[in-house]
Amino acid sequence: MPTLNISTNVPLDGVSTSDILKDASRTVARVLGKPESYVMIIINGAVPISFGGSEEPAAYGELVSIGAISPDSNKKLSKAIAELLQSKLAVPPNRFYIKFYDVKGSNFGWNGSTF
């Protein structure tokens, strides 16, 4: 159930969002050691964002997972997602924040129940 939600001020018109979604999904599954069939990726483009007083390309992400959140996995995911955003959307790594949430299964709903 890892879920990565990314918002960026970069318009997604003409961008292969499918490639971003696929790459991010594989990366999250690999780094967290979770089946990719449980991974959800959300990307929102053209979101008004100011970072450091500038509206140059920037992004913000939140990753929620039941377990597998650790200092090591957080560093790996932060680096991998920053590289993906730089290569696909020209968002520099220093203009991207990501927040990690480790939640209990009882606090995450799925299939009409919780985990």
Rank of each mutant, 00 (worst) to 15 (best):
I98G: 03
D23G: 00
L32W: 02
V31R: 10
K76R: 13
S106L: 07
Y60Q: 06
E55D: 12
N44H: 12
W110M: 14
L21A: 10
P71N: 09
E83P: 04
G105I: 11
I98Q: 03
P2M: 12
E55P: 03
Y38N: 01
I43G: 00
I43V: 15
M1D: 06
I66V: 14
P71Y: 07
G109C: 08
F51K: 09
S70P: 12
G67P: 06
F51A: 11
G61D: 00
L12H: 09
P92R: 13
Y60A: 03
S7F: 08
F96L: 07
L89D: 00
A80Q: 08
K88S: 02
S37N: 09
A46M: 11
I98A: 05
P93V: 05
P48G: 11
P48E: 01
F100I: 10
I98T: 05
L4P: 08
I20E: 05
S37M: 05
I42K: 15
S70I: 06
S37P: 04
W110N: 09
N9T: 14
D23M: 10
S25T: 12
S87I: 00
S50Y: 09
T114A: 03
L63I: 11
P35W: 09
I20T: 08
G112C: 10
S65K: 05
P2W: 05
I98R: 04
A24H: 04
F108H: 13
N111F: 10
A46D: 15
L12V: 12
I42L: 10
S18E: 08
F100L: 03
G112K: 03
T3P: 07
G112R: 11
I66Q: 02
I98K: 07
A58M: 09
S16I: 06
V15D: 03
I81A: 00
P71T: 07
Y60I: 09
I43H: 04
L4G: 01
S37I: 09
S7K: 13
A68Y: 08
E55A: 15
G105K: 15
V15R: 15
I49D: 00
L4W: 07
S113R: 10
W110H: 10
L4M: 14
R26H: 09
A68L: 01
G14Q: 06
P35I: 10
L21K: 06
A46N: 15
Y97A: 08
K79V: 15
V28I: 12
D23Q: 10
F96E: 00
G67N: 10
L63E: 05
I43Y: 04
V15G: 02
S65L: 05
V39L: 01
A59L: 02
E56K: 15
K99Y: 04
G105L: 13
P57D: 05
T27Y: 01
G67H: 12
S78C: 07
S78Y: 08
K34R: 15
I43K: 03
M1S: 12
E83A: 09
A29E: 01
E83G: 04
S54P: 00
L21D: 01
G33E: 13
